[in-house]
């Protein structure tokens, strides 16, 4: 993997990514609740949610790409992290993993 060119920018991108990954994770749980209510109980109380969630997910994609470009991920990894935002609970785990990886590499380059 390439070295991180701009540690400061990468650090900011990581923070943005962490916030968005958390938001999408929560939003996804709301979405699952909405679907259970709607198709399981014919309850349409949360029907308004899928639409804003789509836009939140889009911001997550932007955050992932932003981070990916700054820390030199390949396309495959970016796409996988993006898709992780579609699986309930997985996004929390991926966020932790990504944060640990990038923070570790950032420590290395910042220490120099």
């Amino acid at each position: 993997m390439n070295e991180i060119r701009d540690p400061q920018a990468a650090h900011k991108a990581l923070t943005f990514f962490k916030v968005m990954a958390f938001t999408v994770g929560i939003g996804l749980l709301v979405l699952v609740t909405e679907m259970v209510l709607r198709y399981g109980f014919d309850n349409h109380a949360l029907d308004w949610w899928p639409q804003p969630h789509g836009f939140i997910y889009m911001v997550y994609l932007v955050a992932t790409a932003n981070l990916g470009f700054k820390v030199g991920w390949g396309l495959g990894k970016m796409v996988l992290v993006m898709l992780a935002g579609c699986v309930p609970f997985l996004s929390f785990w991926v966020e932790q993993k990504v944060a640990r990886e990038v923070e570790g590499r950032l420590e290395g380059s910042l220490a120099l």
Binding site: W48, Q51, G54, M58, L61, A65, L75
Partner: peptide
């Protein structure tokens, strides 16, 4: 709501184009 979905598809398409250009 469906109009917003339409907009989202187009934004995703624009995003894919941005990804390619950026890479």
């Amino acid at each position: 709501r469906n109009a917003a979905y339409a907009l989202q598809w187009w934004l995703f398409a624009a995003f894919a184009a941005y990804m390619w250009v950026r890479m």
